[in-house]
Amino acid sequence: MKGTVYLNDKTGIVVIGATGREASQVIKESEALYPGIVKAGITPGKGGSTELPVPVFDTLSEAVKDPKVGKLLNTALIYVPPVSVLDAVMECLDNGIKVLYIITEHVPIRDSEIIFQEKERRGAIIVGGTSLGCFVPSVGRIGAIGGKDPSVAFRDGGIVVISKSGGLTVTTAEMFKRRGWGTYMALAIGGDIISNTTYSDVLKQIKGDPKVKAVVMLGEPGGAYEEQVADLITSGGFDKPVAAFISGRFQERMPEGVAFGHAGAIVERGMGKATDKISRLEAAGKKYPVKVAFYYHDLVKAIESLGVPRDFEDSTAEHVKPLYSTI
């Protein structure tokens, strides 16, 4: 297999909510970039439509029985409105799809919880909600990550970028590309409270993959997912270089408003705040190859100092000049 469990040369995508504005654009772009990676689309009531470069079905059950594409479908890309996500996930799981991406933002937390527990029972992989998708330059793309021309940000290499923020996933890949490191995989896991795929879930999956040279992780305040990475590394569960940036320190300095629950603070005592995450990862960095960047752009220096070899030449000048100046 070429690629990862999240995206590989066997990946065949079915898009749920295929004829919506964003989804249809993504299908068309994907077809142009990696022809044939998207196999089918589902929109109830639009079965048989020819508006997309892939066949459209009313139900997933029809699609998986289709003699042409049915057997090729193994990955679902979900683009339905927030309140329909749970329904879409159940439709996918009940029809045997084992890898799902939830692109939809603002999924109700209660639904996210039901989805997570169902996924655990069925042994499926779900990325998101609020994922932007996945990019493995040597294999293909799932979702809109990187836009119309992903070559701006992505070039094949050895770095794995894992980020809660979709936008930063691309921004980070681009920053590294300019400085000589390419991307093996970029995965936008989404920042939802109940995250179906966490940083440590990914690290466990890619642990033995020889193509992985280093991991760049972008974290945010809230939850315990970044702390879990520190725990995983210190327990010997991942030994390749990890550079991390955790945003949100400034929120701790802002006047406290309706701060999040005391209860949250109890369940996750000493976790959740940006500074908690940073100190846990820094502690892991004393014995293991882990570096936390103070400024986001220091991630490049962190990867450099961890001794990760460049995939190609550094192309950026030391001091970047503005495109235009009126001052």
């Binding site: 527990q117 409270i193 809230g222 939850g223 109890i266």
Partner: peptide, 28 residues
């Protein structure tokens, strides 16, 4: 209280017989 524990990715019920004061002040 009831809240989501991201550590467990599940809802958690939190209970103490020693309520009334700020919960941060209760012995863990």
């Amino acid at each position: 209280s009831v809240t989501y524990s991201t550590k467990d990715r599940a809802p958690a019920i939190i209970f103490s017989e020693h309520g009334g004061m700020d919960v941060e002040e209760i012995d863990p």
